[in-house]
Design a binder for these strands. Structure first.
Lengths: 329, 329
DNA sequence: CTGAAAGCGCTTACAG
DNA sequence: CTGAAAGCGCTTACAG
């Protein structure tokens, strides 16, 4: 492999000068610069990033930690992150926790050892060990999706999104609204969205029938199963609407409802959250909330870059959303 | 940051010994090893990967080049790659070409400069500059999806998949089969799939009506538009079936057909390729080909690792597929 | 079983 | 405007 020394020799200068020419740091005469650049061009020389990073403590790499590599949400966010980062010459080092909390911590430390310049975590839970680790590695850090105390966080407005959806159903005259949530281990999706639903029900003096509450695990299948058991549990007192906290679970529920001959939205209205691709093309098209995940990714990247460049910035940022009204209600 | 020197000092040994203990290379007595490990534990020391990689020329990082970050196919493949790689302690450095051929080449060189141990390219085209570059960087390299001459390639069996689909339609009695393809710039998707379709038509003495041939660009919208113009162009001589070379285009076409009041499959049958998530939940569910993208990713990672470990392996591997018969035919 | 020394390929004060 | 030298944090022959 050609190194800076080879270039220096070929150009008859010191490697100091080559380095300066390459990085536009310090003075170097036009002739020399041209001579160097020509040789760089010819040889196809590329500076070793390991050496560079060892020396400068900067790698031009941002670590991204995902809960799952193959969900639309993750993909969109990463896409946004990458769009901004690539423009600034940064690359993404990707890791996937497979929803394992320990891996979250392992990867933070691993990324540190790989000298990433910063880390973006798509967070699915909040716990002390995690926050502890983040503090320890002392790297520019941003969490998306959950508010981590003391950590720069970019969060969706889960409360209002969920409240809007519930209110919308109520205003359409629904009083018996079933709900499929997820584990409270995930504060944003599990806890906040459910709280907003319950708050709105209460505000309108509607009682929540606990047999109409299910807990899924984000999968389509769990939506299907939860719908099934809700319908079984509440017997003759059927809900007239379903609020599932993710599109995938909503779609699973719709599958079951359609199988059982329910008309959507005639017999039961369905709403989800996430604006998945599928939500638009399923029949009937699903009413949902668009969280603009790609924009979230972009914003995340920008915030992290600011932090890296030592700009003073706030700790918490809230994102906006949009309710997409479609045929399922 | 704690370095190997700090550990050495704390443990009262040389850094040589620490290195040996950490890497299980060469002898080191039990006492010393334990002493070292304890300190490593306490300090949370992690060796600098930059220094390591500078010295050893190995980084534990694999570069992955994607045509688009946000397609199901890409995501599934990356997921498979990551599953195998993570187990072996490798990380993925992710790059997205946004379908720009120049970026493909730039990224290969960039990844080289970042000392990746190997590169996996989800290929969408074949050209000399690309092959040239791959040869130049002289790194373990694997292309997925296209056969690159002289480069280890893992390809889908586009010809037979496409032929099967066409035959299936013919055997169901269809004679006027419309076709939505993509640019021949993409040999596998654009050229091979179309060739198989034409070959099968010919084998069954069916003439291809050129006004029933469209060319989309992978997007749902292009499927919609192509279907529209096909229907317009062939006037009264309507097709009774449509073969779109990707699910997304098939779904776009279905949208248009449904809008226009066509019954699927009654008036016109539709098939796609890709086994997208949506294909299962759209109404009617879409007949398609499953390419097992995740398995492809796994296989790719395994092949690349073999190559890195200097195993002699073949240059070309063909993947299997499965036809999923559903309600759209 | 352990250590001193060289070297990987860069950048950056420092000196001229 | 240019260069010699030190040093980033590791590993690995070599010597003992």
């Amino acid at each position: 492999m050609t190194t800076i020394n080879d270039i220096a020799q070929l150009a008859n200068v010191s490697r100091t000068t080559v380095s300066r020419a390459l990085n536009n740091s310090g003075y170097v005469s036009e002739d020399v610069r041209k001579r160097i650049m020509k040789i760089v061009e010819e040889t196809g020389y590329m500076p070793s990033q390991s050496a560079k990073s060892l020396r400068t403590k900067r790698s031009g790499v941002i670590g991204v930690i995902l809960p799952r590599l193959s969900t639309e949400t993750s993909t969109r966010v990463v896409n946004g992150i990458n769009e901004v980062l690539a423009k600034e010459g940064f690359q993404i080092l990707l890791t996937d926790t497979e929803l394992d909390k320990n891996k979250e911590i392992d990867y933070i430390r691993l990324l540190k050892s790989r000298h990433v310049d910063g880390i973006i975590l798509l967070a699915t839970n909040v716990n002390d060990a995690l926050i502890q680790t983040i503090r320890q590695v002392d790297l520019p850090f941003l969490a998306i999706g959950q508010e981590l105390p003391g950590v720069m966080s970019l969060v969706y407005d889960d409360y209002h999104a969920s409240a809007d959806l519930t209110n919308m159903l109520i205003h359409k005259g629904h009083e018996k609204i079933a709900f499929i949530g997820v584990s409270p281990e995930d504060p944003s999706v599990g806890r906040v969205r459910e709280k907003a639903y319950r708050d709105m029900m209460q505000q309108h003096d509607l009682v929540v029938n606990e047999s109409m509450i299910g807990q899924g695990d984000f999968t389509i299948e769990s939506g299907y199963e939860q719908m099934k058991s809700i319908l079984k549990n509440c017997r003759e007192d059927k809900p007239t609407a379903l609020f599932a906290v993710t599109d995938r679970m909503a779609i699973g529920a719709m599958e079951y409802l359609k199988e059982q001959g329910y008309e959507i939205p005639g017999d039961i209205a369905v709403v989800g959250i996430g604006a998945s691709n599928m939500s638009k093309y399923i029949t009937p098209s699903l009413t949902t909330i668009d969280y603009f995940n790609k924009d979230a990714g972009k914003k995340a990247a920008k915030l992290l870059l600011s932090k890296i460049n030592d700009k003073k910035i706030d700790e918490k940022f809230e994102l906006t959303y949009r309710l997409i009204l479609r045929d399922s209600v």
